[in-house]
Design a protein around this nucleic acid. Structure first.
Lengths: 148, 148
DNA sequence: TATTGTTATACTCTATAACTATA
DNA sequence: TATAGTTATAGAGTATAACAATA
């Protein structure tokens, strides 16, 4: 049951186990960063998603949760002055959620607080970094297009 | 504000953005797989962690939540016959959680149900797969040792 | 005394269903 | 009639604090 690197190429299953371990550590780093900034996990995810304005419905999709939950989550972020609701004039049913300056700054702080991931990435040589970037883009592209 | 691949090597910040996107998709695939098997997110994580017996305390650490929460989570898994508690004879305060045959099989099913990640990994050439494996091991190793 | 696991409690997250306002 | 967002509610996850059993 090979789990680590071997002279021959690892199978997709081997890589998946490694990827699973890595994503667990990544997620933990994200959670810790969020908590240091007084954000729950979902709040931090929302703030980081709001690089540009998004409808409530889109945010529910991105968090893969029911749309009804977004109301309260955004309520709390709005009370903290991190986001604002703007009715879409093209379709007055839609509310676009927009990050305020504070919200945008906090999203950046979340990323900055992910010391573990950041430091680990700094240990990569430029060529390995380029390689990782390229492979992740291939994987991500394949996974998102296959969902359409 | 470069986000995608470019002729020069991407910075750690560039790669981090890509990694964030990828981990979000990965996590969603895991959640969907868990829900198809009637497991909550935390339950699925626990089941997948129990390749070998672990103390309640260790599980809390792995899920980075308070130890008190593990009690109810394990209660539910135990009621479904997926895990068992065994008092550690070396230290009778400790309870080791052990996956049953059904629990082990279900953990494997969770991994099998992650079609998106699996299919994406299948698109990698052997050399890129080997490269990804090696890079992830470097990153994971760096992040876990820096936490000690 | 310190540690493991449990219980009780309160807050947050999440899904479901019923409602409103717009389309 | 269909859709975007809201409200109400119930079930699950989580942290805090206090407790029993064991070390």
């Amino acid at each position: 049951m090979p789990h680590t690197s071997s002279p021959v190429s690892p199978t997709a299953v081997d890589v998946m186990a490694t990827l699973t371990d890595f994503c667990r550590v990544y997620q933990q780093d994200f959670l810790t960063a969020a908590q240091r900034l007084d954000l729950t996990y979902s709040q931090a995810k929302l703030v980081c998603l709001l690089a540009e304005p998004r409808a409530m419905r889109e945010l529910a999709e991105a968090l893969s949760c029911d749309a009804s939950n977004i109301t309260l989550l955004i309520d709390r972020l709005e009370q903290r002055g991190l986001v604002e609701r703007h009715t879409d004039q093209a379709d007055r049913r839609v509310k676009k959620v927009v990050a305020t300056a504070e919200g945008t700054a906090l999203a950046q702080q979340v990323r900055d607080e992910m010391h573990g991931v950041r430091a680990a990435l700094e240990t990569l040589s430029p060529s390995r970094r380029r390689s990782l970037q390229s492979i992740l883009e291939q994987l991500h592209g394949h996974m998102t297009t296959s969902l359409d």
